[in-house]
Amino acid sequence: MNLVLSEPQRAAAAPVAVEPVVEILSAEKIFANGFRGLAPIDLAVGRGEFVSLIGPSGCGKSTLLKLIANLIEPSDGKIMWWRGPFDAVGKAGRQLAFVFQEPTLMPWARVARNVRLPLDFLRLPKAKSEQRVRAALEQVDLLPAARAYPRQLSGGMKMRVSIARAMVTEPDLLLMDEPFGALDEFTRNRLDEDLVRLSWQRHLTTVFVTHSIYEAVFLSSRIVVMAANPGRVFAEFSVDEPYPRDENFRESERFASRCRDLSALLTEASFASRKVGP
């Protein structure tokens, strides 16, 4: 397995030139039941990077993302945000937003109030937050649905509300766990295009979990391929393509060849994920 890995690993070894937003320093996760979810991981995400995590099911992608969101704590090692502890996250210029796999909206609140929720947490003046909510809904094309209830929306629309709720805080670090996994191909492509445009316009730093090779190549500046048993970083894969990207990139030969390379790498990662021992 060492043979095939040399090429992507060289890309990984290149130091991150820009200021790191997240640094994972030998962070390891052993769950309460003794299960080793993540072997010690080292990973840095630089400012403005779009990093995707991809790998076979159960390799710890969600666990790694939760560590980055501070939803769970590492059993060993540490994580730094903007070169400091998590306490400073949430201050100006260090806003973090998390988009779950499910839309996780409040069913009793209209779309606009759902999007406003994080601003209410921040105690923003009403007039100002209304204006930002409107802008966020406009970005995801949902202004006409502002007064609807979540149950009146399609799955894709709900997901867009969830993204608007993340965008409304004008985050600096955006974490997304398979946000479009439950959507059809067409809707997913559209949302991917929206996302790539938004993150480009806003200079967002994004960590994105996905199962889709095409999605990872389309969105990312760097792809982290993970393997399971135990969960670890298997290889890293750079996508040196200029932003903003659009459907032209998706139809290009370069895109196809990147997808083939990533697919081969993923096959190796799956192979390396087989259970060892009895």
Partner: peptide
Amino acid sequence: DPGLLSYFRMNKVGRAETLIRLRIPSAL
């Protein structure tokens, strides 16, 4: 909804506010 609860936790929302904004409407 455990997802919403995580969302509130991640935003460092206090007990009282979680009660009013999340628990009471969910319990209704």
